[in-house]
């Protein structure tokens, strides 16, 4: 009887301690509008081009579309960059990626995982202006998307498991 209670308590203790670790991780996601460059007027050949931006975009692509076809990964990057240029969304790359509720990997913390080589190449192509979606601002996974609103978007193309649209 006591033995069972003790085992139960030990398990509870272990779970609690693990939980502390989890709390620490989830705090990493809190990023406060750190980018002060709000001007959308800077003319860059086709968007942004700094090394840290490429890395951030690559991590977002990796977290959102691992295992998708290459053009699907470029497409995810293009959607993010299209948002930077659109009036409906934040005007900077970090602003768009860390917008609350916009991308699941940010809420889950997987955005902090390093990108693989494919995602990095896809990010480069997207930053250099390739856009397989012809200007899409949204993408969703038809089998897991829960918001009815997202289905009211017009569909442009379906690549792999993602639908891209406006």
């Amino acid at each position: 009887m006591y033995k069972k209670t003790a085992i139960f308590l030990i398990i509870l203790l272990i779970i609690s301690i693990c939980n502390i670790g989890l709390n620490k991780i989830s705090r990493q996601n809190i990023v406060w509008g750190s980018n002060t460059d709000t001007s959308p007027n800077t003319l860059v050949s086709d968007g942004v081009s700094r090394e840290d931006d490429i890395n951030l975009l690559a991590r977002a692509i990796h977290a959102e579309s691992k295992g998708e076809p290459y053009e699907g990964q470029v497409a995810v990057g293009a959607v993010i960059l299209n948002r930077v240029k659109d009036a409906k969304f934040p005007n900077t790359l970090p602003g768009v990626i860390y917008q609350p509720g916009a991308f699941e990997p940010v809420d889950r913390g997987t955005i902090n995982e390093p990108a693989n080589e494919t995602a990095y190449k896809a990010a480069l192509d997207a930053i250099n202006g390739w856009d397989p979606t012809g200007g899409a601002l949204y993408f969703w996974n038809p089998s897991t998307a829960t918001s009815p609103w997202i289905w009211s978007r017009t569909i442009i193309i379906k690549i792999g498991n993602h639908v891209f649209g406006n």
Partner: peptide
């Protein structure tokens, strides 16, 4: 206006109700 936009987009409000 850009600062206001920046602040608004970083609040946890659903996109379709404020775009």
């Amino acid at each position: 206006s850009y600062m206001a936009h920046e602040k608004l987009t970083q609040l946890p409000i659903e996109h379709d109700s404020i775009y």
